[in-house]
Design a protein around this nucleic acid. Sequence first.
DNA 1: GACATAAATTCCATTATTTGGAACTGAGTT
DNA 2: AACTCAGTTCCAAATAATGGAATTTATGTC
Lengths: 264, 264
Amino acid sequence: MEPERQDEGGAATGTLGKAIAVLETVALADRPMRFTDVLAVSGQPRGTLHRQLSHLVQEGLLELRPDHSYTPGLRLLKLASASWARNEFRAVAAPFLEALHRETGETVHLGVLRGREIIYLDKVESRQAVRMNSQIGNASPVYCTGVGKAALSVLDAAALNAILSGLEFRRFTPQTLADRASLLAELSEIRASGIAFDREEHEPGIRCVAAPVFDAGRALFAGVSVTGPAYRVGQEQLDGWAPRVSHAARAITAELAARLGPQR
Amino acid sequence: MEPERQDEGGAATGTLGKAIAVLETVALADRPMRFTDVLAVSGQPRGTLHRQLSHLVQEGLLELRPDHSYTPGLRLLKLASASWARNEFRAVAAPFLEALHRETGETVHLGVLRGREIIYLDKVESRQAVRMNSQIGNASPVYCTGVGKAALSVLDAAALNAILSGLEFRRFTPQTLADRASLLAELSEIRASGIAFDREEHEPGIRCVAAPVFDAGRALFAGVSVTGPAYRVGQEQLDGWAPRVSHAARAITAELAARLGPQR
DNA sequence: GACATAAATTCCATTATTTGGAACTGAGTT
DNA sequence: AACTCAGTTCCAAATAATGGAATTTATGTC
């Protein structure tokens, strides 16, 4: 057995960590799971898992339906609601994302740099509020997403270096920038133009334009993007959207400085 | 010390329960809390609390900022997104709530009966997506809210009796129905009309019209409401909205039966 | 800049909780 | 009636949490 993980963080969180892993398994599943379903993926002994699920149910984080399937509980929804409403960065950016979506008609993302990955914080997809899609909270590589490259482009040399060293490149598509030199070259172009593209570098058939959003004082490096399918969105279209994306990104950056900057 | 709680559920959830209590304290606070702030409300020893917070941070449920304040973490946002998107009942009702809001211009609520309380599941307030307000997940008394009385009105005698026995009435305003007899009388009127009002019975200056939503097969009893301030919304206005509210409630109820009913 | 004060963090023997294999229950099937 | 499978309960052993006190680190004051 592996006694330690090499990842950042380090120490084990004991009981809580296992319980949250179970919670996440159930909450992120695309359909209600029954006891045996959870047992199969959790890799824990029956007795242990049963007690963990019982505790989660008692706490209101999960709900046990009459048919013995587990679903997210109302208390989780409450925490959900609160953490969503109180994420300042997301809240500041939201109206700009909406505007960008109205202007382009395509999917708009807000992603933030976290270690060596991009985590999606918000997404605006359809005009009707189909908010909080499951994409939110998910991680993607920095080096082959528009938002990722945009965020990298505004890092200082030291921080960039810290991320690049130890970054493992994987070729997702033929277009993926799969080595340090290509990425660095691309980043200096992005620094010059203020715009990053994803030309089917992560997923075949998916393109995007992105621009950086940041608040250096808070070590916040992020990006906004407009994404579309390649069959409908050509390079000219991306170029056409670039000014709007850039404008939105600068507006959010300015708003961050104004709203969060002059505190205490 | 009290060895047991008389509340439903019973057994203690040990470590997890305490950790979640801490998580909730921080996540529901209206501003970032520092260690001492949490210590003051948690009532736990320093060492214990510190380890709990550390674990929550390591799990990504909380985030520790450079200024030593704790805020909800990205993993909580991820769980948020998922549990929000996957709550079937909320998702089924959402478009009808939107429509009701467009028709009335006032705040629309969706609340569900949980034990002896109403828990708010969704809320549509402004046209711009200010969704997931902090009200969501909060509990209110059944006997003095429109949604609560609407939900009670569709319960069968046994279930209603189980809730009423042991219900403690509190007079929030001069209009509050603060005893069983008044409430029962009101409920039979609601049963006859299919419409419940809150005439400043819970909060002074706040009125609403509500109608019941239910899926008896799943023991789901809920309600939708349109709420407004008394200075702007008179009884005539509530009466005027009543048909629309009632229509929305029946539409949701029907949709539930169609979407959730014929499963397995 | 040095000092005083408060806040945050670490330590570790004690204590309580989790662990997990196995036995039990009950519903559905052959 | 015997069999299977999902879910639940049990309890001695192993493990993780506890919490008071000491230590380090931040913050404010003169």
